[in-house]
Design a protein around this nucleic acid. Structure first.
Length: 278
DNA sequence: ATTGGTTCCTGCTGGC
DNA sequence: TGCCAGCAGGAACCAA
């Protein structure tokens, strides 16, 4: 799915399109995503004013004027497209599972071919206790996420650091691409046991995570096959990947000769340089 | 308690 | 050119 930078980019697009607007009509074309959507979704959205849109981990949170919060996750193939008021209607797509019509004519479509995404409802007061959000770790761009905090989260864990970074309880929002990139920047082997990432190594990894996520957000995220920004534009951070998807290409840091390798970890592809990542 | 494997679903791509 | 196995950004769930 879109990882943190992609979700952040979508949230910024939604924020512009939705804030201060009223939802006048909701179409629910297919209620069975990864989990069934709430049966009262349409009733609870229609007529509500949108107060804001924000992000937590890879979740999109839409605050409504009655205290309801819409929780949306894009899964692996989910996207939200925005048709500006007066724009030609999009071609009908069988994977537009939920369609929102706003009072200014804006149309938002939640599209997810693989249906790994989810949509749920909560309320502002109980949001932190919602089962989807309650166990999630610190936001990586929050100043509270520092070397000692990461080291504490990794203490005693005998899983590879790559797998630990994908664990949303350790740190929020990192997925396969940015885990590979951050470990390369930090010079840490993806195979290294998580518990050995402490002290200076943890500091380096935190700095690397912040660096890659910040640059990716600035680029509008990475566009893969299934991902476009809310506005329909493409992010371009995929051109800045140093290891992800570059199997066999020379490591940009080591110079010629040392090829980027690919291996499987926990069923996912890991890309790394065996020379400069220890 | 941690950890690794499996599973959900569809679409695209690379190799034959 | 055509076919199809394998793979894809995630994470909940299960068993050990």
């Amino acid at each position: 799915m879109p990882e943190l930078p992609e979700v952040e980019t979508v949230v910024r697009g939604l924020e512009r399109a939705m804030t201060g607007r009223r939802i006048v009509r909701v179409e629910m074309n297919r209620p069975d995503l990864r989990a069934p959507m709430p049966p009262d979704l349409v009733a609870r959205l229609e007529g509500r004013l949108v107060e804001g849109v924000r992000r937590r981990a890879k979740y999109i949170l839409v605050d409504l004027d009655d205290g309801t919060v819409v929780i949306a996750h894009l899964g692996m193939s989910g996207r939200i497209t925005i048709s500006a008021p007066g724009a030609a209607p999009n071609r009908r797509d069988p994977h537009d599972h939920v369609v929102l019509h706003l009072d200014d004519g804006t149309v938002l479509r939640f599209n997810d071919a693989r249906r790994f995404g989810r949509i749920d409802l909560s309320d502002r007061v109980g949001l932190a206790r919602h089962p989807l959000l309650s166990g999630i770790g610190p936001e990586p761009l929050d100043p509270a996420f520092d070397g000692p905090a990461l080291a504490a989260a990794l203490a005693g864990r005998r899983t590879p650091i790559k797998a630990a970074l994908l664990d949303q309880r350790v740190v929020a929002g990192i997925g396969n691409i940015y885990a590979c990139e951050a470990l390369h920047i930090a010079g840490l082997s993806p195979r290294r046991l998580a518990l050995t990432v402490a002290g200076g190594r943890a500091e380096r990894l935190v700095a690397a995570i912040r660096d890659v996520l910040t640059r990716a957000i600035a680029a509008g995220g990475s566009s893969l096959r299934d991902y476009v920004q809310a506005s329909g534009e493409l992010g371009y951070f995929q051109h800045d990947w140093v290891v992800y998807g570059r199997e066999g290409e020379p490591c940009r840091r080591c110079g010629a000769g040392h090829a980027v390798r690919r291996m499987a970890q926990a069923g996912r592809s890991t890309f790394y340089c065996a020379r400069c990542q220890r």
